[in-house]
């Protein structure tokens, strides 16, 4: 039983690690479009509308930069968990995931109601963050159970 939980924890950590890498890649690609002001390949025209909207620069910061930092830190933290079992790491992951979910929630709301366009990459990233958050909760639950 304990072995099973250990394995599950390891697998969940790996999933979050991979999802974070995916998040970093998406954020780098979209951020490149923001900085170079070039069009972003998208299934609809939403990415272009979103890229050009002032709402995509809260406090002057391009939204994908926030994503890049968030996912990068998540990647480092999940990697650190393969070296250390410190519970603080998991708490930090959860804290970032909570912030991440709130952030993507706010941005998706802004996209729909203010920008009136949805960027596919942002939607994928929002879903990605939500999955990380759910897995983070599951990992925390498992950690508490084995304490």
């Amino acid at each position: 039983m304990a072995e099973n939980i250990k394995l599950t924890k390891k697998v969940l950590n790996r999933i979050v690690f991979i999802l974070s890498i995916i998040g970093v890649i998406i954020a780098v690609y979209v951020l490149y479009g923001f900085i170079k002001k070039t069009s972003i390949v998208c299934v609809n025209e939403g990415c272009e509308i979103v890229r050009k909207s002032p709402y995509s620069y809260p406090l002057g910061i391009p939204v994908p930069l926030v994503g890049l930092i968030g996912y990068f830190v998540l990647m480092i933290l999940t990697f650190a968990r393969s070296v250390s079992q410190d519970l603080k790491l998991l708490k930090a992951i959860l804290a970032i995931a909570v912030f991440g979910v709130l952030f993507v929630g706010w941005f998706t709301y802004t996209e729909i109601f203010y920008i009136k366009a949805v960027c596919t990459w942002c939607a994928i990233s929002a879903l990605n963050m939500l999955i990380i958050f759910i897995i983070g909760l599951k990992m925390y639950q498992l950690e508490r159970r084995t304490k």
């Binding site: 390891k10 950590n13 790996r14 690690f17 991979i18 890498i21 890649i25 999940t78 990697f79 393969s82 070296v83």
Partner: peptide
């Protein structure tokens, strides 16, 4: 810092990703 087997596995994932992206 001594890397665990799991750390090496995760580094492997990063390397494979970098190769795929490049």
């Amino acid at each position: 810092m001594k890397l665990s087997g799991e750390s090496k596995f995760l580094i492997g994932i990063v390397l494979v990703t970098v190769i795929l992206v490049i």
